[in-house]
């Protein structure tokens, strides 16, 4: 564990909690892509199946449970509790266009051809593109609320910090995971456009379509 990893995890946690609180406090999930949240719930579920097979650390176990719990709570709020406020008309990204190719790729490029390993790889690839429905929704409506942009900013910071974490691990531990690194770079690039708008236009982001 290094400072970049820890800060990245905390930034990720902050993003998840910001989103949950936003929906809970405003009693509305307007502007939030339920499809992205379903994808994130799927990402955590397929990645953290190792909760059942191996123990890494108390920190690791706790964070995994919190991430999974929050992901499902968010999906529940969007599709059940505050369904009336859900922006389904604009949340039209076809997630099968992400899930099918990502599923195929995880069968072809993985560390080990075993069920758990393929699911883990699937989760890594899927996470890298899971934010696309959310960015698509913002481009369709033409704007995002301030709090939604904070959420996206925290997610982007988390990804960027993980890149530094991998650089650190490569230099000081000789460790690298090519699958995680390539997917992480792709994911970070997806946030660059958003970062640029966030910094130049302030918090009120409107992605030009």
């Amino acid at each position: 564990m290094n400072i970049f990893r820890l800060a990245g995890d905390l930034s990720h946690l902050a993003a998840i909690i910001i989103l949950l609180l936003k929906i809970w406090k405003t009693r509305s999930c307007a502007g939030i892509s339920g499809k992205s949240q379903i994808l994130f719930a799927l990402v955590f579920t397929t990645r953290y199946l190792d909760l059942l097979t191996s123990f890494i650390s108390l920190y690791n176990t706790c964070m995994k449970i919190i991430y999974i719990g929050c992901a499902y709570a968010t999906v529940h709020l969007i599709y059940m509790k505050f369904k009336a406020t859900y922006d389904g008309n604009h949340d039209t990204f076809r997630i099968e266009f992400l899930i099918v190719p990502v599923g195929g790729l995880s069968f072809l490029v993985n560390h080990d051809f075993s069920p758990l390993e393929i699911l883990w790889t699937f989760s890594i690839y899927l996470e890298s593109v899971a934010i696309l429905p959310q960015l698509f929704l913002i481009s369709k409506t033409g704007e995002a609320e301030t709090i939604t942009t904070h959420y996206l900013f925290c997610l982007g910071v988390y990804r960027a910090l993980y890149l530094f974490n991998w650089i650190w691990r490569f230099y000081f531990e000789g460790f690298f995971d090519m699958i995680a690194i390539v997917a992480g770079v792709v994911q970070t690039i997806l946030y660059c456009d958003f970062f640029y708008l966030y910094v130049t236009k302030g918090e009120k982001v409107a992605i030009p379509s």
Partner: peptide, 10 residues
């Protein structure tokens, strides 16, 4: 541990 998967990460 070169090229091994990062299972200890989140």
């Amino acid at each position: 541990e070169d090229g091994k998967s990062a299972k200890d990460e989140l």
